[in-house]
Nucleic acid binder design. Structure first.
Lengths: 340, 340
DNA sequence: TTGTAGGCGTTATCAT
DNA sequence: ATGATAACGCCTACAA
């Protein structure tokens, strides 16, 4: 069963091809009668427009390219909510998502744009100095970044407000009556890659601690594994004083750290305060559930898609760059010590 | 900077458009000299063919549609290795992946095929009686299933060999000297959805136990959560006898079960044998690392893509259906009791 | 309100 | 070995 074309629809409805096109697009007034006949023909033949032909003629593909960091980055687990949300938002605007993995680097970008595979590109996992940015900035199709580089080069960016996350975390520790906070850092790989949030979080944590008059200490890097967490926890407890407070900004390290503490008989919520930076879903899986600042991947993604489509509808005039920050939320669970 | 077309390349190289096309496709002998000139022009203009135009003219999109079960299914965590592998295999064959979420149900399928958005479709998360199958079987584009329905309707399927996984698990329990095995089942939602592997695993487990002369008991359903695992573990220990052996086929429940046992002071590997059905990656994260039968999502996906491209190259003659099973692998870690 | 016709950028069939 | 030249299916001025 070969697919029907708009020509078949036109013949069946006794109108011209262009009328069929205008009925579908609504870009021209059509009499109720014709519209009904055309629609009937469309339904009867279950006509659907050919995507390639439409893209060729209209210069719009109705596709959003999504470049995801498989292989490269560490924390792939956290990817799914991003992908899911992006796909959902795209469909809501009658677009599809073309998924491209990051290991092609800059080539993925040039291919997406060069072959006119999509109308816009979402770039994830942005490094502080990301080699893809110059290419993205010069690209024929609009690009939006999830993550914030040192120099966005006029590209719109969306990300969690990591400085605010740091402030919330420190505030929680202060509220629990600690006079010292130990920040367990990210993995060596993440640091080496130059993930921009590392610096953003750490600087804000130092400042917030200073402002609150509590001592700030750091253990870094922290490998994301049982052993890595054990080592980091040992060091943290060594320098953390008699009533330690631990901040764990690396989302995937949070469960390991809680586990490593428990193993040592240092119970989070009884002997030590732990504040993790992770999704609520992850926070609820630890024993005991960890006090967390949420990373809100869904909000971040939705915001990005919203900006992207707004830009697309506006006919692309003026690359409306700008940094958009999504507010994190702190939820006190069972790993915050009661203030003395 | 508008994109260049093959016409621009042709002019620059002083040849006709068709020659440019043939240089790119290699479907016609070209003299070394012309080829060089054309290639130089292509490089100079960084020419890339327009995907829509190519699809329109050649009837091939170089895109694979991937329908993934976001939202619907429970175990979305296990999705990433599938998606990653599928994307990788697609790129290796110069194809891209269009990601479509499952919540549109059958509409996603008809859209992908009807608009000629892709050359082939990968359908995941197949239910025993899947409403999409009739549509898939009648589709204009080839469809491959990851998962095995009761009636594949001539569609090719690939999945883990769940019966073999059950046999491996039971064999491990038998080797550890147990005379009784408790199978913790899947979640109520997974059962209700009619996930086909549920039955496949359970039947084989019953048979293998009978064949080995060990008693088979079941706890089902098991909710995937701390509380669900606690309840299931309580029941399992109640009926499991003095030296219990637990089989946990629901991949995402494995960590919860290990944790629930540990909480009760019933240590896996010391007081109880636990065999999980999950990826090696998950098995290594539990404390202690759990003896597991691997689910091999990468092998399953790679096999599916291999079949798909073989079929695509063969010009689609004869819908080469057939069920392909990927062999699981048992790895003994620290939760198998020593035989008495 | 509707029809006509040219063009979007490739591929592939004729010719030469 | 290479060049014209029809499709491919849709969109959108331009006409009527």
């Amino acid at each position: 069963m070969a697919a029907f074309t708009s020509r078949d629809v036109a013949r069946l409805a006794g109108v011209s091809q262009s009328t069929v096109s205008y009925v579908m697009s609504g870009r021209r007034p059509i009499s109720a009668d014709t519209r009904k006949r055309v629609q009937a023909a469309i339904d009867q033949l279950t006509y659907q427009p050919n995507a390639g032909a439409r893209a060729l003629a209209s210069q719009r593909t109705q596709v959003v390219g999504l470049v995801v960091p498989f292989g490269t980055a560490g924390d792939t687990t956290a990817l799914l909510p991003f992908i899911e949300t992006i796909a959902g938002c795209a469909r809501a605007e009658d677009h599809d998502v073309l998924l491209v993995t990051d290991n092609e680097g800059t080539a993925a970008l040039t291919r997406l744009a060069g072959r006119s595979l999509c109308d816009a590109i979402v770039l994830m996992n942005i490094a502080a100095a990301d080699a893809r940015l110059p290419v993205a900035a010069a690209s024929r199709v609009p690009v939006i970044l999830i993550g914030i580089p040192d120099d966005p080069q006029g590209l719109p960016c969306v990300d969690l407000d990591y400085p605010e996350a740091a402030r919330l975390s420190v505030a929680e520790v202060v509220a629990a009556g600690h006079d010292r906070v130990v920040v367990l850092g990210w993995s060596a790989e993440e640091i080496a890659r130059g993930a921009n949030y590392v610096g953003r979080f750490e600087r804000a944590a130092v400042e917030a601690a200073a402002a609150a008059g509590v001592e700030h200490l750091a253990v870094s890097p922290v490998e994301v594994s049982r052993e890595g967490a054990r080592a980091a926890v040992a060091e943290a407890l060594r320098i953390g004083g008699p009533r330690p407070a631990l901040l764990v900004p690396a989302s995937s390290a949070v469960p390991w750290v809680v586990q490593a503490l428990t193993e040592r008989g240092v119970l989070p919520g009884r002997d030590v305060t732990v504040v993790g930076l992770c999704t609520d879903a992850v926070a609820m899986t630890t024993v005991p559930p960890v006090t967390n600042v949420s990373t809100e991947p869904r909000d971040v993604s939705a915001r990005a898609m919203q900006i992207l489509f707004r830009h697309l509808e506006r006919g692309r005039e003026g690359p409306a760059g700008g940094v958009e920050l999504v507010a994190p939320r702190l939820t006190r669970r069972e790993t915050t010590l009661a203030a003395p």
